[in-house]
């Protein structure tokens, strides 16, 4: 408490406080992986599996009928035409289904697209199992070409009782030439 003799306690305290500052700076960045892990476990941000799962052939629950709606969207600057061939399907939990999406690149340049799915309500995301999806990879499409992209999925029979309807939205981004564009390598 003697101010003029406190130079040493001062610098010790400063070092500790600066440590807290750096610790909190690191914590800010640590929130990024923590957030992903947390959302992965709880499925609350509507993100679905990013690599294929194998169909475990669970018992099909014919007593329930779930409506799955597919909607599509392109972001600003993405010229592709992108639509769901099937807008809604009614499925039994446990059964394997295939739906198709259509894309056409009307631009005069070749474009690499990336579709990002998002499920609403978010809690349904954990129960949507995709065994095959165009969203697992980049989609390069030369100028003027079109393509039909399949997506195969089943709904986990554990899907909570109160969910009978959910929406899967695909948002298509133009990622040509960005760091996310890995068309040269295999994305699998």
């Amino acid at each position: 408490m003697q101010p003029k003799q406190s130079q040493n306690p001062n610098s010790r305290l400063v070092v500790k406080l600066v440590g807290v500052v750096f610790g909190m700076f690191a914590f800010g960045f640590a929130l990024v992986p923590l957030y992903d892990v947390f959302c992965d476990i709880t499925g609350i941000n509507g993100k679905t599996n990013e690599t294929a799962v194998t169909y475990s052939a669970p018992e099909v629950d014919t007593s329930r009928m779930i409506t799955v709606q597919f909607i599509t969207k392109t972001t600003a600057g993405m010229p592709w035409k992108f639509e769901a061939r099937t807008e809604t399907v009614k499925v039994h939990p446990g059964e394997l289904n295939t739906v198709e999406f259509y894309v056409r690149n009307p631009a005069i340049r070749d474009i690499v697209g990336q579709a990002i799915p998002s499920v609403s309500p978010g809690t349904a995301a954990l129960y949507l199992n995709k065994t095959e999806c165009f969203c697992f990879n980049n989609q390069p499409l030369p100028s003027g070409q079109e393509a039909v992209m399949p997506m195969q999925f089943y709904v986990d029979p554990q899907l909570p009782e109160d969910i009978n309807f959910f929406t899967v939205q695909y948002t298509l981004y133009d990622i040509t030439g960005t760091s996310a564009d890995v068309t040269t390598e295999s994305a699998e």
């Binding site: 990024v32 990622i175 760091s179």
Partner: peptide, 26 residues
């Protein structure tokens, strides 16, 4: 305040250095 510094840094790198902290496409 360090967390604020972190989040503006992420905005900076997302905008100028191609990271995808807040970019769904990446």
């Amino acid at each position: 305040m360090p967390v604020l510094a972190g989040v503006v840094t992420m905005v900076l790198t997302d905008k100028y250095f191609g990271t995808s902290f807040f970019n769904a496409a990446g």
